[in-house]
């Protein structure tokens, strides 16, 4: 009996000490607000932590579809909507909650918009979902490799390393300055325009994605922030089966769902000129159309203030707008691609 009690004490002590250490490390490596984005390894974290406090009414979440299809600058210029695009390439749903959590430490959004394309990413791993669930309790699991950040640039010793890092850095920095919008003027026409043919069955969803989606829904509910589900135009990534599945999910969770693939005519998307990669993603021309439409939709359906008269907001958004127009101007002058 005495031996058993001693054994239980050992196990409990071990778990307690370990938990304290993990929590302490979590605190040490917690990403912090900074003016230097190069100090943050994760590009979405960098976008969040370099955005001035309380300057965001809408958080835009999703994978490359969101990253490339909604421009916060356009939402700002059209309706004075203050938004921050936190989309990133291959952003699985299990990552979204962590980003939202971090963003809500410094922002008080009135709406979260979630692009639903990542619901159908089949490469998702249960393991990564689990790690992010455990990270809810021990954040160090999410930020564990941040110890590399101070050494990151110092260890770029050769030209090859510097060149690769520089290329990534330029892209990330450009996107960050545009409030998370990936700007591209490339054009590669799409072929098949009839991609929304009605089907009877919905697209299957991997259970880890479904679980992660429910986590996002629960988190937004807990934070009392409305959630809007959207799908942005994509010939390669979207179809009616996916629409059906998302519609069912939206109905089940009592959430609004806006499928912009159903409005391609209204949006006047021209797949010959508005896609950068054969219908997978839109280029800036297409994105402007989507963003303008979305701005109108949001104004109509949500009580979002026009922040253009507010200096605190205007400063950061005007800076982003100026950068966007500079890029457009450079393109027109043939400086950038």
């Amino acid at each position: 009996m005495k031996k058993n009690i001693r054994y239980v004490v050992y196990v409990v002590s071990f778990l307690l000490i370990l938990s304290v250490c993990l929590l302490a490390l979590g605190e040490i490596f917690r990403p912090r607000v900074t003016s230097d984005p190069s100090m943050i390894r994760d590009e979405v974290d960098a976008r969040i932590l370099t955005t001035p406090e309380n300057t965001t009414d809408i958080l835009l979440m999703g994978n490359s579809e969101m990253l490339a299809h909604v421009s916060p600058v356009t939402l700002w210029e059209e309706e004075g909507i203050a938004s921050l695009n936190l989309g990133s390439v291959g952003q699985f749903f299990y990552l979204v909650k962590g980003y939202l959590k971090l963003a809500m430490e410094t922002q008080s959004p009135r709406l979260v918009i979630l692009d639903m394309d990542a619901l159908f990413l089949w490469e998702v791993r249960g393991e990564n979902y689990m790690i992010h669930r455990v990270a809810d309790f021990f954040p160090i699991l999410r930020n564990h490799d941040r110890w590399k950040e101070p050494y990151r640039d110092k260890l770029l010793l050769t030209d090859a390393e510097k060149k690769k890092a520089g290329k990534d850095k330029d892209r990330i920095e450009k996107t960050r300055k545009l409030k998370g919008y990936y700007y591209s003027t490339e054009n590669c026409p799409a072929a098949d325009f009839d991609y929304m043919q009605p089907v009877s069955d919905g697209e299957p969803v991997i259970s880890w994605n479904r679980l992660a989606f429910q986590d996002i829904v629960a988190f937004c509910k807990k934070k009392n922030v409305p959630l809007l589900l959207v799908s942005t135009p994509s010939i390669k990534n979207w179809n009616d089966a996916k629409h059906e599945t998302v519609q069912i999910l939206a109905d089940e969770n009592n959430l609004p769902y806006l499928d912009l693939n159903l409005y391609v005519d209204e949006l006047q998307i021209n797949w010959e000129t508005d896609s950068r990669d054969g219908g997978d993603h839109l280029n800036d021309k297409g994105t402007q159309k989507v963003s303008r439409f979305l701005a109108g939709y949001l104004k109509e359906h949500y009580d979002l203030p026009d922040r253009r008269g507010d200096k605190h907001y205007a400063e950061t958004y005007e800076e982003a707008a100026a950068y966007y127009h500079e890029l457009v101007g450079q393109k027109a002058a043939g400086v950038t691609g």
Partner: peptide, 18 residues
Amino acid sequence: IAICTAAVLVLVMFGAYG
């Protein structure tokens, strides 16, 4: 306990996951 805690912390901090 110290060995076990250190081992788990090393794995958590330096593991190639995520």
